[in-house]
Design a protein around this nucleic acid. Structure first.
Length: 297
DNA sequence: ATCATGACCTGTTAGC
DNA sequence: TGCTAACAGGTCATGA
């Protein structure tokens, strides 16, 4: 499910109830998700206070008061929801039908928050491609999860020069290059399709074709960085995209899917003014790519 | 080294 | 209506 904007939306939803809260208990209802939970997972979390909720690429992090970091990845279908347990006064908290989602509730974090009282954060993940781990804050950047990750697409590091350096000599299609978390971390299938359409670049074009002989950026790279930055920012603003199950932590739906130009719009007219093309679906590296062959060259 | 592919799992939907 | 096949936001291990 979640690319960077969805994970960031989850982080923003969890932060108000998790930051500053003490974890009173954790229930892991099975031994593994994609990977086994770390040794003594629940015991190591119990009693810890959460100092801050963070995000790196598509990873959610919770910094604990003992120097460990709870790392969480939502995989394809992971989501969180918040439930108030007592007479807590959280405006707009998700009042859901518990029986509906309980089937795949795998981890329950029981929290005690100084302002909100007793609250639970519940991790649900039907496909179980998500995972959780505990690592040391001191070794965070060197940890295998994070060591090889590329830059965040939201910050100043993303530039035409950066992409030119990383694309140089690459024979892989632009679509695959942008999905590679070692180059730009956090982009996924939706937002790569959208950014390439915005930039008017074909997903089939070889990444290396966007650099000049001496490794300088071609004229297409500045617009591409702009489109990446823009689509990610707009999607975060919209609370992410709700294709089937992504929700904000308060239960409301993200609505960026209504702004897709090409993703999941096969057969529809290209929305670019004056283009007149038709959105097509192709398969690249085993995954759907949506693009407009008329205006993406 | 680089790249494309299948595997991991379950749920939903398109098509017959 | 009911069955089956294809497909889904991600990543990792494989083999060419």
């Amino acid at each position: 499910m979640p690319e960077l904007p969805e994970v960031e939306t989850v982080r923003r939803g969890l932060a108000p109830v998790m930051e500053g809260a003490v974890i009173t208990a954790v229930e892991a209802r099975r031994a593994d998700l994609r990977f086994p939970f770390p040794e003594r997972f629940a015991e190591r979390l119990a009693g810890r206070r959460i100092a801050a909720m963070g995000r790196r690429a598509k990873y959610l992090t919770a910094d604990l008061d003992d120097g460990t970091v709870l790392v969480m990845h939502l995989g394809m279908s992971g989501s969180f929801r918040i439930e108030v347990t007592g007479e807590s006064s959280l405006p707009g908290v998700f009042h859901h039908d518990r029986s509906k989602q309980a089937a795949h509730d795998h981890v329950l974090f029981h929290l005690d928050h100084p302002n909100h009282g007793k609250v639970r954060a519940i991790y649900n993940d039907p496909r179980r491609f998500g995972f959780m781990d505990l690592i040391a804050r001191s070794g965070f950047d060197q940890h295998p999860f994070f060591r090889d990750l590329g830059i965040e697409p939201t910050g100043n590091a993303l530039s035409a020069d950066y992409l030119a350096a990383r694309f140089a000599g690459k024979r892989t299609p632009l679509k695959a290059a942008l999905l590679d978390q070692k180059l730009v971390a956090g982009l996924g299938n939706i937002y790569v399709c959208e950014a390439l359409h915005g930039a008017g670049l074909s997903p089939k074009r070889l990444a290396g074709s966007l650099t000049t002989k001496n490794g300088r950026p071609s004229k297409h790279l500045a617009p591409l960085t702009d489109e990446i930055r823009k689509v990610i920012a707009r999607a975060i603003e919209a609370g992410g995209s709700s294709l089937r199950d992504h929700r904000q932590a308060d239960g409301s739906l993200g609505y960026f899917q209504h702004q897709f130009a090409v993703y999941d719009r096969e057969g529809e007219p290209c929305p670019k003014p004056g283009c007149g093309g038709t959105v097509r679906r192709i398969v690249q590296s085993g995954r759907s790519t949506f693009h407009c062959p008329s205006c993406q060259r």
